[in-house]
Design a protein around this nucleic acid. Structure first.
Lengths: 330, 330
DNA sequence: ATGAAAGCGCTAACAG
DNA sequence: CTGTTAGCGCTTTCAT
């Protein structure tokens, strides 16, 4: 079917080794032979078989990526950043999605092992025994985005969620809020759930509130859960501000407030997390903690490629975040 | 470093061939030997090298994907569909993004050739001579989403854009619109630009309008262009409805109308295309032509895999669409 | 039922 | 400067 290096060698009247030398610019080749080979290469449109090359070099120039859901804008921005950066280093990515299913995640790691990817970038919420043993038995560089899992082999990249939530809460207080409720993520999610809650808690306590007075509802990061929890809170307490653990829940909360006739931000201020593209164009636009997922992807790809190339890479890379103030707060 | 089949063979006290037989369930293996091999496999966590296998079988179980922008929700849904379907057939995907840059697209095709992907799914707007020659010289099954390029080797999958735009325009007329303007895409985009415009034109003409009376502005599918073109139209003509060639431009138009004090839908009705996640949650929610990108991805993956397996696959697969009526129309 | 050996397409070491 | 050879890790005849 498709030509191999022997065919090219025959056509050019040289040995396969010479063709290889021309293709890889390795070793010296007589100018005349070089021309001939180049010509045949051009005419035939020959492309060297990356599998054979990979076999020899034990290198595939491929990164394995696992994200929970590529249709979530945060992750698609993240993957976009990875892909762009990777390409600039001549790497490609095998993309998989896990829906946060632990078994699927582990299956992906095994597939990556078979396909001999050079590095893995993982975004997930849990680090089970299976994950651990997978990592223990692997020599493939491994990077985790968005969590701070404990494992010697893991490079982590993340924002300081606790500090970010603390800053966000303080912002709401500074804008006159007295009764802030939080619509958070599941607490077993140590980063976007637990840490963001802890930031909210510490800012509230600093303000003089008792931990058991805090109004907190645990959601699942969906618009719907934001909507429903907002409703639940309004039925119970009088509040004047909401901190949501992500933008989707914040948007759900705003929608609920609008449906029930509350004015945002005059009666209730709302703040989100992430700075989803929708945050800016929604009506009212959403005040939020901006995380640059695209940039995070670029940094992640750079870090894992550096690691692959045996360069020194920090075990923990802290990402910047930024409070973006829009119309959903005063 | 990592173990190979010889190591496993040694550990189990059999030959590599026997290990291979156990792994692939090919040929007969004595029950006792099988057990021993299985045990070693288990203990070592051995994973066969997919490169070596691919070399022999001339098959990688990998699909190459090119989309313009993975952070665009339409494409991320599409890719999600591909990935899910592909995985169920034991295929993985190499994802690349092109930003609609022709050179990048062609580079991706060449890379796919080197990495010996089994099939390619391409989403782009132009089919240049380079694209053509790339395809002419390739034996890799090739599928195009969202365009109807002319080439014997291409499997196309798309909605009937002209008919969809025709239906959308008629819907606006049926809701009492008298002066509909269209904010379209670039006409050189034969599908989302040209065909959608033609549908608008034919419905308008059918209604008794002269083609040269039509109000049409050419945008680039961004929120910003929707906003700016809306403003331009309002400065020139009195209109009571807008058909946009995608949801982003429709959202930009609504935003502009709101900024200028027009009521949507009472003074101006707005209709989009695609049914972006934002269409539903925007305020007002957007009437639009729904395209199921996730489903499209599943269908595309199934089609290309069928083609890889030499099954009969239609050269053109027409996708369904659906008018979704929300609050931006009466 | 099992092992030896050849070979997938390429590169690298070694002669010449 | 160039060709021959061995071998990356696996599968698959072909003998036994």
């Amino acid at each position: 079917m498709s030509l191999n290096i022997k065919d090219i060698a025959k056509l050019a009247g040289v040995s396969p080794a010479t063709v290889s030398r021309v293709i890889n610019n390795s070793g010296n080749v007589n100018e005349e032979n070089k021309e001939r080979v180049l010509k045949v290469l051009e005419e035939t449109g020959y492309k060297p078989n990356a599998l054979a090359r990979g076999l020899i070099h034990k290198k595939t120039n491929t990164l394995g990526i696992v994200v929970p859901d590529i249709s979530n804008i945060n992750f698609s921005e993240f993957v976009k950043g990875i892909e762009n950066q990777a390409r600039s280093y001549d790497y490609n990515i095998i993309l998989t999605t896990s829906e946060n299913n632990f078994n699927k995640e582990v299956e992906c790691f095994e597939m990556f092992k078979e396909k001999r990817v050079d590095g893995i970038i993982f975004s997930g919420t849990r680090f089970t025994e299976k994950h651990k043993s997978e990592l223990d038995n692997s020599t493939i560089p491994f990077l985790v985005f968005g969590q701070n899992f404990e494992h010697e082999k893991i490079i982590s990249i993340n924002i300081n969620n606790q500090k970010a939530a603390y800053d966000a809460t303080k912002l709401l207080f500074s804008k006159g809020a007295k009764n802030i409720a939080m619509i958070g993520g599941p607490l077993w999610d140590r980063a976007a759930g637990y840490d963001r809650f802890m930031g909210f808690l510490s800012a509230s306590v600093e303000r003089g509130l008792k931990p058991n007075e805090l109004i907190y509802e645990e959601g699942d990061f969906t618009i719907k859960s934001g909507y429903n929890l907002m409703k639940a809170i309004l039925n119970k307490k009088k509040i004047d501000a909401i901190l949501a653990a992500n933008d989707f829940m914040a948007l759900g909360a705003i929608k609920c407030l609008a449906d029930l006739g509350y004015s945002v931000p005059n009666e209730v201020q709302v703040m989100g997390f992430d700075d989803n593209i929708i945050a800016e164009i929604y009506n009212p636009s959403l005040t939020t903690v901006k995380i640059n997922f695209y940039e995070a992807g670029k940094i992640a790809a750079k870090a894992i490629i550096d690691k692959i190339n045996k360069l020194k890479v920090d075990k923990y890379i802290e990402l910047k975040y930024e409070l973006v103030i829009r119309k959903s707060t005063i």
